[in-house]
Simulated scan of single mutants.
Amino acid sequence: MPLDVVDLRSFYNSPLGEVARRLIGKIVRERFSNCTGYSILGFGYATPYLGIFRDEAVRVLAFMPAEQGVVNWPSSGHSASALVEPAMMPLPDASIDRAILVHSLEITEHPRELLAEIWRVLTPGGRILVVAPSRSGLWARIDTTPFGHGQPYSLGQLRDLMRQTLFSPTHWDEALYAPPFRRRTLIHSAAMLEQVGASLSLPGAGVLIVEATKQLYRPVGVRKAAQRALPGFEPRFAPEAIGVAPALRVVKGAGRQTPNFAPVSV
C-alpha cells in the first residue's frame, strides 16, 4: 500500500528524517554534480532531494503518484509539483535529462511500467538515479520509517529490473548504515557510522542507490511491431484438382458407372 504524502512529509520534518535526507542527498549530489541547463524530474517523494538543483537546472519537476497524494513544492514561487499516473506522465518524449526516484519503485504496483515511462521521457543518454530499500538492511524491516514499506530489493533484483527495462547500470552505492532508531545518541553518531560503513563496505545498509543510463534502442518494441506487420496465414486442408479430373460416363447395359479420364480444362 502506498504511503500517504502526509506521513512522508512528517518523517522528513523529524530529526531521523533529516539524517536520511542529508546522507542520501550527499550521494545524489555526488552523482548529479553538475546539472546546469538540465531538466530534472523527481518521482515519488523526491522533494527533499530536489532543492539543491533549483539554482542551476532549467526546470525541476516533482511528480507524485495518485495513490500517494501531492504537496505543493516549492514552498515559495510557482508550484512545480503535480499528481500523475506513473505510466502516463504529462511529458513529451525525450524531455528530461535527469530523473530521481525516491519512495516510488518499492511501492508502485507495476515497477516495470514506471521505469518504461521514465525511459520514454528521458533524453538519449539521460540518466536515472533510483533509491530503494535494501532487502538485507534494518530499515526495510522496521515500518516506523517510509523505507520500511513496500517491496525491498536486493542488488541482483534491482540490477535485473533495470536491465529488463533497457537501462544500463553504471554505478552502485549504499547509504543509511545507522539503525533507524530515534535515540538522540544514534542520531548524533549517524554521520560517523555512515563513514565507517561506507569505507569498509559493511553489509546492512538501509538503501541501495543505483545510477543508470538510458539505452538508445528498444529491441522488444521493434520485435512486437514486426510481428504485427506480418500477414496472417490460414491453413487449408482441402486439396484442389490440378491438370485433369475424372469424368463419369454411363456404360449401357452394365448397370454401373465407370470413370472416363478425359482431360478437363481448368
Rank of each mutant, 00 (worst) to 15 (best):
T145I: 00
Q151I: 11
S199Y: 08
V6P: 02
A247V: 04
V5D: 04
R183M: 11
S199I: 10
A62S: 15
A140G: 11
M64H: 10
P239K: 03
S136D: 08
P111F: 03
P259Y: 10
R228L: 13
V250A: 11
K26F: 10
V70L: 08
L83W: 11
R218D: 15
A262C: 08
A190W: 04
L101H: 01
P92G: 02
G197H: 12
G221D: 15
P180L: 01
T170E: 15
W73E: 02
F43R: 03
A20V: 10
N260S: 07
S136N: 03
R249Q: 11
S75Y: 06
I40P: 07
A212V: 13
R21P: 03
G206V: 06
I24H: 00
V70G: 01
V222I: 14
S154C: 12
G17P: 03
I24L: 08
F233D: 01
A254C: 08
L200S: 06
N13I: 02
Y12A: 04
Y177W: 06
E106D: 08
V28L: 11
I107N: 05
G221S: 12
G17E: 06
A198L: 10
A132F: 07
G150C: 00
L122D: 04
D7W: 07
L115R: 01
I118M: 00
F53L: 06
T108Q: 01
D97T: 08
M89C: 01
S33G: 08
Q164A: 03
M89S: 04
S201C: 15
R59G: 04
Q195P: 02
R159Q: 06
G37C: 12
T258V: 06
P169Q: 13
S154A: 09
A66Q: 13
R163D: 11
S10T: 01
R127Y: 07
E194I: 05
A175W: 09
G243Q: 05
P152R: 10
L122G: 12
L114N: 03
L115Q: 01
P124A: 00
G44R: 03
P169T: 14
T123C: 00
D97N: 13
S76K: 09
R218L: 15
D93N: 07
V84H: 11
V220H: 14
I52E: 12
G126S: 01
S168K: 15
V71T: 13
V220S: 11
S76H: 12
Q227H: 13
L61P: 13
L101Q: 03
L114S: 01
L155I: 15
L105W: 05
V70P: 05
P219T: 04
W139V: 05
G206I: 12
V60N: 00
V210Q: 10
C35M: 04
A245S: 12
A191D: 10
L3M: 06
G206A: 11
R54H: 07
K252H: 14
A82M: 14
R120P: 02
T258K: 08
F32M: 09
L161N: 07
V207Q: 09
V251M: 05
V121Q: 08
S104P: 05
R184G: 13
G126Q: 04
I107H: 12
M192H: 06
A87G: 11
F233V: 02
Q227M: 14
P92R: 03
S76P: 07
L122W: 09
R29K: 15
G51T: 05
S104V: 10
W119R: 07
R54A: 08
T47S: 12
L202R: 07
R21M: 03
T145L: 00
I24E: 00
L161K: 02
E234W: 13
R163P: 07
A140Q: 10
S154H: 08
